[in-house]
Design a protein around this nucleic acid. Structure first.
Length: 182
DNA sequence: TAAGTGATCTCT
DNA sequence: GAGATCACTTAA
């Protein structure tokens, strides 16, 4: 058995073109530590929100108090509250001043962005926190190699109001799960 | 298919 | 301040 490589992803990983980061996060592990409990789940679904021009992005109308983390350094959490009950977890990409982030939509058994944050106790407290062990949330590369053929690219979810052009961009990546035969 | 839920943003 | 909107989930 070969040694398992386990590497915590640093800022440099996220300070790259958003779509590349979005794609490469599939198969990485999101790790959350709360007190003594540690949860690690493999990321299976992501979406990119890239730049001022992206009409589906919170940043397309400019900077506001809420979306400020998107304008900051890469490798930082952008967590916001919506629909009166759900938290959404994003990871900021690109350099300071360029608003972009990756929405983590699913990981491990948590399918759906709001279920994921509920399962991992992710709230506003993590907003603006860098991904690092000391923050209690980080991302590891555990050496799992994903076959690109098993990653599906589709339009993003819930962004129809962004119009046909931006609403149809294939900015969503989904790992095709193995089917369990009965 | 639609209700629930409340912060945030835009427009008065 | 008021009204619309919202990167969703759950129960039918």
């Amino acid at each position: 058995m070969a040694l398992q490589k386990k590497k915590i992803l640093a800022r440099a990983f996220f300070n790259r073109p958003t779509l590349i980061v979005t794609r490469e996060l599939i198969g990485k592990f999101l790790v959350r530590r709360v007190g003594k409990r540690k949860i690690a789940v493999m990321i299976t679904e992501t979406e990119a929100y890239d730049g001022f021009k992206d009409k589906a992005s919170h940043a397309h109308r400019g900077q506001t108090p809420r979306n400020t983390p998107m304008f900051g350094e890469a490798g930082v959490c952008y967590v916001y509250f919506t629909y009166g009950m759900h938290w959404m977890l994003n990871i900021v990409t690109r350099e300071k001043g360029y608003p972009a982030a990756v929405l983590i939509r699913g990981a491990g058994e948590h399918v759906g962005p709001a279920r994921l944050t509920r399962g991992l106790s992710i709230t506003k407290l993590l907003n603006g926190m860098p991904l690092a062990q000391k923050s209690g949330i980080w991302i590891e590369d555990r050496g799992i190699v994903i076959n690109p053929r098993n990653v599906k690219r589709t339009p993003r979810v819930g962004v129809d109001s962004a119009g046909p052009v931006w609403g149809n961009k294939k900015y969503r990546f989904v790992l095709q799960q193995k089917r369990v035969k009965k």
